[in-house]
Design a protein around this nucleic acid. Structure first.
Lengths: 192, 192
DNA sequence: GGTAGACGATAACATTTGTTATCAAATAAA
DNA sequence: TTTATTTGATAACAAATGTTATCGTCTACC
């Protein structure tokens, strides 16, 4: 699992092995809640196999903010970084194989990494990149119609459309399940 | 202008004076375009007095993404950091007094700052914080009604409601000017 | 002072989207 | 296999929001 990333990190073998020894292997069924709403998140997950959804409860309505797949890391990021109650639920969609690492160990790694200029700069770039990604996602909400957002999703994140049940996609796009059905139906009839 | 920030930066007086010498003073009237759409942004601005709007053009429609006021720094941030064409326009709303600094100088300062652990960590925290702010803004779009977003705006950013013309606020909230008028009107009648 | 432009309210109508309910198909569990 | 659960489509109606047009007020500028 971790070997594929080995060459991306200019670390000694000792450090590398120390870091990967912090990770714990688990297998979980579909619909397993990994982090509950209100919980202070102490774990960050890496997905070896499977699919995870991050969502929050808005007056009983299920609102999905992100999906994650193989080789991505997942956490209730604000809760994990700042140690306050998680506003979101982190939950598997498919049966999944995961590796998790504790907050303490991540902090330790981060502190050490910051002293290595190359990795420090990469962390900073990653944070910039994340901001840009959020901006992009955010802009699409104000400027595009749900139909356009659905078309973009098919184009840019086909995995989501293929692997995720449609009502989760609706909650991700910010429309009702009924309306997403309508959108799909209209798209099909236009094509013909 | 810069003295008020002096004690926040653990720098020698020489460094501090060098850094502030990079800034250039300008005064501009209302509706001055500081960065055009498509331009590669070379400047970052700090507002001494006035108010700035960042917006982008979506099929002829004016969509506002952010407002900035006194003591805030403004740039077409993706364009400035990555040097690609700016997707947004940066424009004054009121007559403004500004200080700008060039990309080269910012890069120089950032490189030097990264070597000072306290400032480096503050930069990293700032980037995390920015991500969280974007997430928050983004979430409010999917979970709240325009009426709720307007009420939040009054509560959390009263400056915007007070100083910014209403049609810009509508474009910031993602609704038509007519609809924002309706929202205001309904709120007034409910209160009575 | 007068005039043009910017700004905001409102009405009438069109379009989009949500809600509730029902049904059918697929899937998982027993 | 049988049954329950999940998933998705569709119809009918309600609510939210956009569009276009008109009008009044205010402000900047000549």
């Amino acid at each position: 699992m971790f070997d594929q990333f080995r060459n991306k990190f200019p670390l000694t073998d000792e450090k590398w092995n120390e870091y990967i020894s912090y990770f714990n292997y688990i297998e979980v069924p579909a619909k397993t809640v990994l982090i509950e709403e209100g919980e202070i998140s102490k774990k960050l997950f890496i997905i070896e196999k499977g699919c995870i959804r991050v969502w929050f409860n808005n007056n009983g309505k299920d609102l999905t903010s992100q999906f994650f797949f193989e080789n991505q890391s997942v956490a209730s990021i604000e809760s994990f970084m700042k140690q306050f109650p998680s506003p979101v639920v982190v939950e598997t969609i498919e049966p999944s194989i995961l590796w998790w690492i504790s907050k303490n160990h991540v902090d330790k790694i981060l502190e050490e990494i910051k002293e290595i200029p190359e990795l420090r700069d990469r962390l900073i770039n990653m944070l910039f990149q994340r901001t840009f990604d959020y901006m992009k996602h955010f802009f699409s909400f104000i400027k595009d119609s749900p139909t356009q957002r659905y078309l973009d999703l098919i184009k840019e994140k086909p995995q989501i459309v293929q692997r995720v049940p449609q009502h989760y996609i609706a909650s991700y796009l910010g429309v009702s399940t009924v309306h997403l059905s309508r959108i799909k139906s209209k798209l099909i009839h236009k094509k013909e």
